[in-house]
Nucleic acid binder design. Sequence first.
DNA 1: GCGCTGTCAAGAGCACTGCTCTCGTCGTGG
DNA 2: CCACGACGAGAGCAGTGCTCTTGACAGCGC
Lengths: 226, 226
Amino acid sequence: MRERARAQMRTEILDAAREQLAEQGAGGLSLRAVAREVGLVSSAVYRYFDSRDALLTALIVDAYDALGRTVEAAEAQVPRADLLGRWRATAWAVRSWALEQPHLYALVYGSPVPGYAAPQDTIGPATRVTRLLVALLHDILDAGPPQVADVPVTGPAAEGLAPLVEFMGPDVPPDWALRGLMAWTYVFGAVSLELFGQRVGAVVPELRGEVYRWETDRVAAWLGLV
Amino acid sequence: MRERARAQMRTEILDAAREQLAEQGAGGLSLRAVAREVGLVSSAVYRYFDSRDALLTALIVDAYDALGRTVEAAEAQVPRADLLGRWRATAWAVRSWALEQPHLYALVYGSPVPGYAAPQDTIGPATRVTRLLVALLHDILDAGPPQVADVPVTGPAAEGLAPLVEFMGPDVPPDWALRGLMAWTYVFGAVSLELFGQRVGAVVPELRGEVYRWETDRVAAWLGLV
DNA sequence: GCGCTGTCAAGAGCACTGCTCTCGTCGTGG
DNA sequence: CCACGACGAGAGCAGTGCTCTTGACAGCGC
């Protein structure tokens, strides 16, 4: 009954917050302002979110979810056997979503607010895109591991990758965990740096998409894709 | 005369700001609090910095400077002919500095405060590390461009890289501008993602340095270094 | 149908922020 | 020596996150 009203109010607040986030960014998100937006007084918002941080956390969670959903949808449209196509679709979808929702992306992948320890809630949805890449890597390996000239990773670094190996499945050699980590790092690193203005003088803004295509294709080649 | 006093006061404020930044991060940096710290009333600080943003900008500028100085020093200790060593020193110094000064690093390479347009002041010092990599790339090319299996970049992407090519020197082929961009992207991407907590479940914290060594060595190999 | 209980929104209030304005003071250059 | 300009202090404004108290309303058991 009033569960419904409550849930609706909650999403109404979140929508208003998302809107304000898009205009002024995480730092400028004012709980009082979103309260005004939805026609509430500031103290009433605390019935729905314990604090401003809690509101931000909720936004983060569903930003992860939205990104994951979008990328999954894009990747799913490519035939399973087209490994390069799946990689391209994934990489491109990440960047596209980030450019459409820059503030949400920044909220998730940007510098965390210090003193803000990511709650457990956020680590689950965070792995959705990761899972896609893991699946892709599995399929690459199953299709016969490509020739790679590098010396396989051993020693402490291999131990350091243990959690990742376990996540990917114990049959994955540490060397390919490293490759997966690096591919993942490249995609999100490139998107983040572009979005955060670190390529200002270096790449023509309108052509950054084209350059990104080449970058990710080089990574693909390095992964042994086609 | 009182120039001295003014300059000293200015650096005193900056030091206090840096200190507070280290404790509470950019978002929590309070002009009034740094004023208290240096024994001033808040309005007096405005004699030295037009606004909180101006203070942050000053911090950014000398963060760029500090990072550049540190990395340059580390790289300079390696014999010029040891190209791989220079790459390793550079990559490692960036990460080390970032881990020592996480808040300063985040200020510079993290998500920018929206509405905060990086003033011209910041783009000069920003290129110091970049210059190191450019010089290294030149030396790699001079030593005889390594074999690379990739198809050279052409088309719109090559045009997109034009500003970077110009910065590196027109004799540099666009293909190597792309390689340089990607190496740069990898280093700062990896450091940023690690620092911003995106590797939490993936890599054992104490061994992240070891893993980073492998990552950057893979990039080096990809660049044709040894 | 009535009253009770728990949920909700409102409002006042506290301590804090960035920033502006005014007003004394004091050192320095003419 | 004196006037001017830089400087610091203080008050004040509008805004913030968050807490606490007060009043209204809905849903429940009797």
